[in-house]
Design a protein around this nucleic acid. Sequence first.
DNA 1: ACCTGAACACCGTTCAAGT
DNA 2: ACCTGAACACCGTTCAAGT
Lengths: 221, 221
Amino acid sequence: MARREPLNREKVLDAALALADSEGLDGLTMRKLAKTLGVEAMALYNHVSNKADILDGIAERVMADIPSADPALPWAERVRTLALGMYRAYRVHPVVPLAMVSDQANPASPAALRPVEALAGAFVEAGFDDDGLRWAVGAVNSLVFGSLLLITSGFGTAPPGPEQLEPFAGVDPAELPHFSRLLGALRRLDPEKDFERALDVLIAGLEAAAAGKSPGGSTRR
Amino acid sequence: MARREPLNREKVLDAALALADSEGLDGLTMRKLAKTLGVEAMALYNHVSNKADILDGIAERVMADIPSADPALPWAERVRTLALGMYRAYRVHPVVPLAMVSDQANPASPAALRPVEALAGAFVEAGFDDDGLRWAVGAVNSLVFGSLLLITSGFGTAPPGPEQLEPFAGVDPAELPHFSRLLGALRRLDPEKDFERALDVLIAGLEAAAAGKSPGGSTRR
DNA sequence: ACCTGAACACCGTTCAAGT
DNA sequence: ACCTGAACACCGTTCAAGT
C-alpha cells in the first residue's frame, strides 16, 4: 500500500468539523482528530498553528455558508433572510455558536463580520440612529444565538430528540402543571418554525420602531 | 495556629462560584479550586461527588436568586418581571448560562424548573394553547440566554469593556462602514437597557398573539 | 471523619530526532 | 517537507493509606 498523500489545512479542517459535529465541542481534541486522520497528534501542527486556529477555521467555513441578502429587497426582508440564514448555517454545526459564545473562536474574522455588516446595513437603511442600530443588531443576534444554543442544551426549547427529554421524566405534573404541558408540546417541536415566529414578532417591532413608534426609542434621522 | 475547621459542601460551592466568576468556566478546575481552599484536590470529593455536581450546585444557587413574580400582576407584567429577573441573576454569574448551554449543568433541577413553570403559567393564563405556550416560552428563554451569552463573548452585543473591543481594532471603516458605526455605538452600551427594549418588543408581540392576531398563530382556546 | 500521595487516563503543546 | 517519540505541565478521578 502506497504511502498516504500528505495532509493539508483543508483536510484537517474537514475532519475537525466532522468530529466536532459528531462528538461535540469537548470531543474535538487534537489527539482524537489526529487518529481520525491516521496520524499522530503532533503532525497536525504542521498545518494549523494550534487548536484555536482549528476552531477559527471551522467557524469561518460555517459562516461562509450564510447567504447574503439581495440588496434590492426591503430592509425588513433582508433582516429576515440574514437572520434565517445564520440560524440555518449554525444549526447544522452547533459547535460554532458554542465556540463563539465561549470565546474559543475569533469574533472579528472577516467571515464573522460579513453578516453583521449586512444586518447593520439594513438597519441603517431603515433609518435607525447609532443607538437604535446597536440595539437592533443586538436583538436579532441574541434571538438567533439564544434559539440555537437552547436547542442543543435540551433546556428551554428542546428538539424532538426523545433522549433529550429524558432528564425531565421525573417531573410531577401535580407540582409543575404548566411545565408538564410545555413538556408535552415539546414533542411536537419544529425549532425553526418557532424561531421564525419569534423572529417575525421581533421584526414587526423593529419596523414599528423605525417608523418612530415605541417601544423602540429614538430612531428617525 | 489551630487546625482549620473542616470543609463542607457550602464552602466548596462558595469558593467554586467565586473562582468561576473571576476565572471563567474553563478556569474552574478541581485543583485550582482546592488551592483556593487550602486543601488538596482530592479532599473536595468528600463534599461533592464530582465536578458536574459542583456545576449543578452553583447553577442552583444562582437560579434561586431569580425573584418570582407577584401572581396578582397581569400576565404580561409577570413575564417581564421573570425575564428581567433571569437576566439579572445570570448576568452576575455568566458561568451559569454558559454551563447550561454547554450541557454541563442539569436543566431539570427544581431550581431551574421554577422560573420556567412561572413563565409557562403566565402564558397559560394569557390563553395560549400548547403550541403557543411552547413558542412563547422558547422565545423569551432564547432572548434572555442569547442576550447574556453574547455579552460575555464580545460578539454581537458587547459590553463597554474596552479590551473586549480590541479584536475589532483592525476593521477598516471603508470596507465595513455599517459595522464601524455599530462599533462606535457599542462603546455607549448599557446591555440591560438594550435587553429590556428587545424584551418589550417581544412581549408586545406576544400580547398581540394572545389577542388572536398574527404573527403568533393559533392561540385562543 | 476528613485529608493526602501516588497513580491512571486523559488534555494541548514543544522540541529534537527521524525519513 | 512532513511526520514521530518523548517529554512537560496540565486535567478529572480512584484508591489505598494516613491522622
